[in-house]
Design a protein around this nucleic acid. Structure first.
Lengths: 165, 165
DNA sequence: TAGAGTTAGTTCAAGCAACAACTATTGCGC
DNA sequence: GCGCAATAGTTGTTGCTTGAACTAACTCTA
């Protein structure tokens, strides 16, 4: 590139090219597995997973958008499609009629139960099987640090209850 | 989720939810900066960067697709758009008339020189500024390990010359 | 209790990506 | 040499994401 100035160091560059490649390849790999085995996008799966952990299996659109790191328009379309398939329901909130509560249906819950194991296997295969326990902790630390820059307000982090995937 | 079986450990789950969030947010953040400041997608930028490091600033389509982790149809469209803007040129390879050689033009090189510093700043801001040198090495190691699972043949790794971003 | 401003969500147009089908060129076997 | 398979790219269709309006509902203030 021959541009002077504050360039990346060799160590940073090595980390960067690999991170970029992971960013490009991992989402596609996860999408392929879920789409093939469950007919779901990885993002769809995340929506269902968040709902399945929420109290009453219900969340408000804005809250759900925050947890899934999505914009509201994007979530709106995804939720519409999932509702058409009967996996979730939409109810206007009685208290605030601007708001919409999204609820996981029984069919949606069964879908999760059926598709989760295969997805977990894929996550293990692509990510955790080849990492040492120390590396898992390092990854959590590093990704958490990045998140504080990417989402400084921290709005977009779920309660971190149990069992997300 | 209440599904028995080989679930993720708490440590793995902590790493996973953070990694997922980074996967969702970082590409968008990089895209926004480049689109706003340079009128380029992050993928566009990667294409130009790869070309700027190649000998003669020229690469074959298939080779370039490998380096940028893209499918050939996707690259074909991107290259067409970049060529329309005068940033690259396409030449049928004299030796093998099936093949297309893509070359960075002088305008394309100037575009890189103009937009690289701002992009590097963004990369620093989102990723490296808040990581220790040890974490940078750990990240390189971890991402490299994942890549071996995601791209076992290793086809998709560039020569790792100097100055990629 | 109006009116201004804010919040929640949907919809619309434009652009990009994935997958499949297609063309053109090359190389190999007989 | 002739024909078949493999290689290198392109094109076209469909679906999804994004960003910008737009509607509806709520709140705060005068």
């Amino acid at each position: 590139m021959s541009v002077e100035g504050n360039w990346l160091s060799p160590a940073e560059r090595a980390a960067w090219v690999r991170l970029i490649a992971v960013l490009e390849l991992l989402p596609g790999a996860l999408d392929s597995q879920l789409r093939r085995d469950a007919g779901l996008t990885h993002f769809d799966y995340g929506v269902l997973a968040m709902l399945s952990e929420a109290p009453e299996r219900t969340l408000r659109m804005t809250e759900l958008a925050g947890y899934t790191n999505a914009t509201l328009p994007r979530l709106s379309n995804v939720v519409k499609r999932l509702a058409d398939r009967g996996l979730i329901e939409r109810h206007t909130c009685p208290g605030d009629r601007r708001a919409t509560n999204v609820r996981l249906t029984e069919a949606g819950h069964e879908k999760m139960v059926a598709s989760a194991p295969g997805h977990v296997d894929a996550v293990r295969e692509y990510v955790f099987d080849s990492l040492s326990p120390e590396q898992v902790d390092q990854l959590a630390e590093i990704a958490g640090t990045m998140l504080e820059r990417l989402d400084p307000t921290g709005v977009k982090r779920p309660p971190l209850d149990p069992g997300s995937v």
